[in-house]
């Protein structure tokens, strides 16, 4: 909840709701993107059967773990780049990998 800048003393109702909503949008987007990425990586596109087989299930589990870990790696790398070259994110963390 840190970086959606409630810098001022008393956030209004609208601001508090917006902050929580923003946090949820973030999680929803991550959820959706994970599904998109990992189904693409793990499911063959011939669809000969409708059930997930063992290999596909294991692939999905590992892909999910790697997707989370990739967020941390990217966040760290992006922070480093921002500090080196003074990019848009120079000020702080990315909400991941903190």
């Amino acid at each position: 909840m840190s970086f959606f800048g409630m810098g001022r003393q008393q956030p209004t109702s609208a601001e508090k709701i917006a902050a929580v909503e923003q946090e949820m949008k973030l999680m929803a987007s991550m959820h959706n993107r994970m599904i998109q990425m990992c189904t693409k990586k793990c499911l063959p596109t011939d669809y000969r059967e409708g059930d997930l087989n063992k290999g596909e299930s294991v692939c999905l589990d590992r892909c999910a773990a790697k997707f989370f870990e990739a967020h941390t790696v990217v966040s760290t790398a992006l922070e480093k780049e921002s500090q080196n070259r003074g990019g848009p994110a120079a000020g702080g963390g990315f909400g991941f990998g903190g």
Partner: peptide, 11 residues
Amino acid sequence: AKNFAATGRLS
């Protein structure tokens, strides 16, 4: 069917 199952598992 397969994507529904995958979505559930990933969730």
